[in-house]
Design a protein around this nucleic acid. Structure first.
Lengths: 347, 347
DNA sequence: CGAACCGTTTGAAACGTTTCGAACGCAGCA
DNA sequence: TGCTGCGTTCGAAACGTTTCAAACGGTTCG
């Protein structure tokens, strides 16, 4: 492993000339350039990136820290990021927060291994984020609200999304709608529940049941939630699941109970995971703008790296309803009613 | 951003004492330890990982280089890797080969930014791999054969997998089986075709048609392939798609043509992507041991890092048939025939 | 009482770059 | 001839750690 020093010696020039030649920052004569290049070739020289980073302190590397590199959102999310990063000649390395305190994610945050970070990991403690941000590392946090102007956070408008889904069901004529929660201590879940309730009350409806069923955001949980609902005998005419995984589990349970979707019951999910399109029937759901979140995150980070002061410290992206085959119109009068009430929509 | 020097000054000890305290390699008195710790706390010191790496030359970081961080296999693959890495206190950072010549992937390979690399990216040129390996970087290459003992390569036995799938169809009584190719210049595809042909010939059958239909490994391609087949009028009784994406496209086309699966036609895919379980009917397919590949890759890399000489320079993992709902037995006599011929199985 | 030893601390030299000010050679000009 | 200015090259000082040999104090032992 030859170093620049070796190359310099071999080419008969000084160390700095080699550096200048290779970096291209300072002009050198064509003759010396050739000599240097020939020497690097002959010695099979490759630069040591670590050393370069140490000295120059500007590594054009963005750390993307996620809970789980294998998670359902990761794929779309990174696409949004990569596109923007590539266009701006930045590199992104992904590392997981798996391993908690000494995960690679934490290492990147604490040890100045990147020029910026995008954090989409609930495993990373907030004070660690604030700490690193305070030390001067530009950070964009996804899906968490941080009341601190040292870092910017991007979230999805869960409330609006849930409102959309619920309103859709109401406009299809449904009046008895159940909400299957994810987990009660999740912010996402609380917001979605909120949107659900807001929509109901805007149309003068009340929740189908006081029963708070939670499915833990898992397919299995959704399955069991439906089983529970069935055990109660009187089914609602529509179910709104707090995420797609649960909805898919629910679909499976309904099939097992020979309850037809959407004929007997309408189902809506949340997230629009890839699978949603493929289950039977295809799942009507609320799409989170994951790709857009990635792209936005990267853009914000970049302008922060350019030294621009942040316009705002929190961004909220809105959701979109994706209609597929798991919902059906019932009755007919109700839809008129729904249309009338729609002026009561929340902003 | 305080440095160790600052901490040393603040604690009234030498630079090396600080280093010794923090790294824990050399024992220091409890008293000085406290003094140092107090100072790091007070100055809000965090170590500079880059500098540490530069000096120590051992960074316990494995670079995982993939074509596309969002690809269908990535998820399972990284799970296998992470598990092993975590257990051995190594970190893995994922970077894509997107961007070709100056992608982060190439940077990690060339610039000694990692202590080892796992490469699952056809975008990375072979000579770059050999170059880096020659320079002393332990590399494990996935899904490519490299006739060079500087690096070890892990592949899947596509031929065996395709043989398995085809044999399954034959044993179900199918004699007219079509193969839908991925892309003709792909090694994977050639191997799968090979296994297909081997199985047919082992049972004394010949391919359904001389027509070489290729679906480019995409869902759309699979869709079009079926349309082409239908246009030919006489359909085979079974279709073997070179991957699941195409098979899923094919399923869609068959549904559009009102051809029932598996009643009218049996379908087998290859890969066992997540979706395969969820399409309708659930897809019978060949599972590639992706998770196992990841775990193996990491294990091999680790033992190489420990300085152990590689036992072998190529590993081949075998596939497994996953039976689901897209195949059906036809006839009855043929299955006996199949059982007889099974002694002719390739090794 | 001095030598030998041990555990702790220190000084200084790396690691391989980048970068900045100075030196150098050469042309143009007075 | 001597000065200025310019483009190219050079020397040396960083960057923030780790690490190794040496120094230091204090016991223990001969």
């Amino acid at each position: 492993m030859a170093t620049m020093k070796d190359v310099a010696k071999a080419a008969g020039v000084s160390l700095s000339t080699v550096s200048n030649t290779l970096s291209g920052n300072i002009h050198v004569t064509e003759a010396t350039k050739q000599r240097v290049l020939e020497a690097t070739e002959r010695l099979n020289y490759q630069k040591n990136g670590i050393a370069a980073d140490l000295k120059s302190k500007t590594m054009r590397t963005i750390a993307l820290i996620v809970d789980d590199l294998a998670g359902p959102f990761f794929s779309q999310f990174i696409q949004g990021i990569q596109r923007v990063a590539l266009d701006n000649r930045y590199d992104v390395v992904a590392c997981s927060a798996l391993g908690r305190k000494d995960s690679m994610g934490v290492k990147f945050l604490q040890e100045r291994r990147a020029s910026g970070a995008i954090v989409f990991a609930s495993d990373i403690a907030e004070d660690l984020l604030l700490d690193s941000a305070g030390r001067g590392l530009p950070i964009v946090a996804i899906d968490r609200v941080v009341a601190d102007d040292r870092l910017v956070s991007i979230t999805v408008d869960n409330t609006q999304g849930a409102y959309l889904a619920t309103e859709h069901l109401i406009q299809l004529g449904h009046t008895s709608i159940a909400y299957i929660a994810g987990s009660h201590d999740s912010l996402d879940d609380r917001q979605r529940l909120n949107g659900f309730l807001q929509a109901l009350s805007a149309y003068g409806l009340s929740p189908y049941s006081d029963l708070r069923i939670s499915g833990n955001f898992t397919e299995e949980g959704g399955y069991r939630a439906i089983k529970t609902l069935v055990a109660q005998k009187e089914l609602p005419s529509a179910v709104f699941f707090a995420n797609d995984e649960m909805a898919i589990g629910g679909l499976r349970a309904l099939a097992a109970e020979h309850i037809l979707v959407p004929d007997d019951i309408s189902v809506v999910g949340f997230d629009d995971i890839v699978l949603a399109r493929y289950v039977h029937p295809a799942l009507t759901t609320v799409r989170q703008p994951i790709y857009e979140m990635g792209a936005l995150a990267m853009n914000v980070l970049l302008s922060s790296l350019m030294g621009a002061p942040p316009k705002t410290t929190t961004y909220t992206l809105s959701c979109e309803l994706i209609q597929r085959g798991s919902c059906r119109r019932i009755g007919s009068k109700e839809s008129d009613l729904a249309r009338d009430a729609s002026s009561g929509r929340r902003s």
